[in-house]
């Protein structure tokens, strides 16, 4: 019988996932992958919400993560529409090639 997992492990996992999301956001050059990294960060935050909810024995954390999901869905709809438009106008998905606002 293994000892139960302490809640801090869940939080550490959440930190690792968030850090990887940030890394992807900074490191990747494709708009779609950058967008996916943002989703990964949101997921990591959701995990910490749910773990705190378990610790406090309250359901509020679940509600917050539910809201995060809804906002993420709305964000994905608008964001992907923007990506489609950018691709239609520029013919590229590379973030550093969309630079007409640059001096």
């Amino acid at each position: 019988m293994l000892p139960p997992v302490p809640l801090s492990w869940y939080l550490v996992l959440s930190v690792i996932l968030f850090a990887l999301g940030v890394a992807g956001f900074l490191y990747r050059k494709s708009v779609i992958t950058v967008f996916m990294s943002i989703e990964l960060m949101l997921n990591a935050v959701n995990l910490s919400f749910v773990s705190f909810s378990y610790e406090l024995k309250r359901v509020d954390g679940h509600i917050y993560s539910f809201f995060v999901m809804v906002v993420a869905a709305a964000e994905a709809a608008v964001g992907l529409a923007i990506i489609l438009t950018v691709f239609k106008n520029r013919g590229t998905l590379q973030i550093d090639e969309v630079d007409s606002m640059k001096l």
């Binding site: 869940y10 959701n46 749910v50 909810s53 378990y54 993420a72 869905a73 994905a76 709809a77």
Partner: peptide, 26 residues
């Protein structure tokens, strides 16, 4: 992991909303 934390509704919502809707769009 959500299921392990007793969040069965959120776990299923995660699969339906993220796995099913958002990622399918991606």
């Amino acid at each position: 992991l959500y299921l392990l934390l007793g969040a069965e509704f959120i776990a299923m919502a995660q699969m339906i909303v993220y796995g099913g809707a958002v990622m399918v769009l991606f």
